[in-house]
Computed example of a mutant assay.
Amino acid sequence: MAKTRKKNPFYLGFHYTAPNAPWQNNNQPEHYLSMYENCPFESVPPLKNDDLRDQLKGYYASITAMDANIGRLVDWLEEKGLLLGDSMKERDHLVVYDEYGPVRMIREKEWKYVHRYPYGPHELYDILNDPDERVNLIDAEEQQDTVAAIKRS
């Protein structure tokens, strides 16, 4: 199959229900919920009740779980020889499009960039040093060349 793969185009469409409601804690895996237990959610308006906080934890947990499963899918496709190159090391990046927004996510070996049209908020994460994506580097002066290079890809 790997030999024919190099001669033929390949498209894979797959769809998640995440991050659509319900977002309550019992609808998300505990592993991902715990990642947001102490999150201040600084990018949203002030939280006035615990129910809203629980929904935000569930929302972000669903996105994180989806991202992790996209990684699992890429690993599986690599094992089956369905992607060009032997590994992510040989490919420049993987592009994921969201049907709403629209949102463009580019994931490279070292970086994850999220671009929300038209005005953001945008995100940049150093996957090697921040695998849990806790520090958004999009506004870091020293990363502006990285952002520009990813945008050109």
Rank of each mutant, 00 (worst) to 15 (best):
residue 150 I to Q: 04
residue 142 E to A: 15
residue 73 L to Q: 11
residue 88 M to Y: 00
residue 106 I to G: 01
residue 123 E to Q: 03
residue 49 N to I: 09
residue 121 P to C: 07
residue 125 Y to R: 06
residue 136 N to F: 09
residue 81 G to N: 06
residue 15 H to G: 13
residue 34 S to G: 13
residue 130 D to E: 13
residue 140 A to E: 08
residue 17 T to P: 01
residue 133 E to A: 13
residue 1 M to P: 04
residue 47 L to I: 14
residue 109 K to D: 15
residue 87 S to G: 07
residue 98 D to W: 04
residue 69 N to L: 06
residue 103 V to P: 01
residue 94 L to D: 04
residue 146 T to M: 14
residue 39 C to V: 04
residue 99 E to K: 03
residue 70 I to M: 10
residue 128 L to P: 05
residue 97 Y to S: 09
residue 127 I to H: 06
residue 33 L to V: 07
residue 90 E to Y: 08
residue 69 N to V: 08
residue 55 Q to E: 10
residue 36 Y to L: 07
residue 50 D to E: 13
residue 97 Y to Q: 08
residue 126 D to R: 03
residue 1 M to R: 13
residue 61 A to M: 01
residue 120 G to H: 07
residue 59 Y to M: 03
residue 61 A to L: 07
residue 34 S to L: 11
residue 77 L to C: 05
residue 147 V to T: 03
residue 65 A to D: 08
residue 147 V to G: 06
residue 116 R to K: 06
residue 141 E to N: 12
residue 138 I to T: 08
residue 99 E to H: 01
residue 149 A to G: 13
residue 32 Y to D: 06
residue 26 N to C: 14
residue 18 A to V: 08
residue 152 R to A: 10
residue 135 V to C: 13
residue 93 H to W: 09
residue 44 V to F: 15
residue 107 R to D: 02
residue 66 M to Q: 07
residue 98 D to P: 01
residue 15 H to C: 12
residue 124 L to H: 00
residue 148 A to L: 14
residue 9 P to L: 13
residue 116 R to G: 01
residue 77 L to G: 02
residue 110 E to W: 02
residue 143 Q to K: 10
residue 141 E to R: 15
residue 110 E to M: 10
residue 33 L to S: 00
residue 141 E to K: 15
residue 100 Y to W: 08
residue 137 L to H: 10
residue 70 I to Y: 07
residue 34 S to C: 14
residue 130 D to V: 15
residue 95 V to A: 11
residue 14 F to I: 08
residue 88 M to Q: 02
residue 113 Y to M: 05
residue 104 R to S: 08
residue 72 R to D: 10
residue 16 Y to W: 13
residue 153 S to V: 14
residue 38 N to Q: 09
residue 80 K to E: 11
residue 3 K to I: 11
residue 93 H to F: 03
residue 51 D to Q: 12
residue 57 K to I: 07
residue 61 A to S: 08
residue 31 H to I: 11
residue 13 G to V: 11
residue 42 E to M: 00
residue 134 R to D: 10
residue 42 E to A: 00
residue 141 E to H: 15
residue 128 L to N: 12
residue 57 K to R: 15
residue 114 V to E: 00
residue 8 N to P: 06
residue 108 E to W: 12
residue 76 W to A: 15
residue 21 A to R: 08
residue 24 Q to M: 14
residue 28 Q to H: 13
residue 150 I to M: 14
residue 54 D to S: 14
residue 2 A to T: 10
residue 29 P to D: 12
residue 10 F to C: 12
residue 76 W to K: 14
residue 113 Y to T: 01
residue 40 P to L: 04
residue 71 G to E: 06
residue 81 G to P: 01
residue 43 S to W: 09
residue 56 L to P: 03
residue 53 R to E: 09
residue 93 H to M: 02
residue 91 R to I: 08
residue 24 Q to L: 13
residue 63 I to R: 06
residue 10 F to Q: 10
residue 3 K to C: 10
residue 40 P to Q: 07
residue 118 P to N: 08
residue 112 K to H: 05
residue 28 Q to P: 03
residue 102 P to Y: 07
residue 141 E to F: 15
residue 116 R to F: 04
residue 45 P to A: 11
residue 28 Q to C: 12
residue 58 G to T: 03
residue 57 K to A: 00
residue 68 A to H: 15
residue 131 P to C: 05
residue 68 A to K: 00
residue 50 D to M: 12
residue 47 L to T: 03
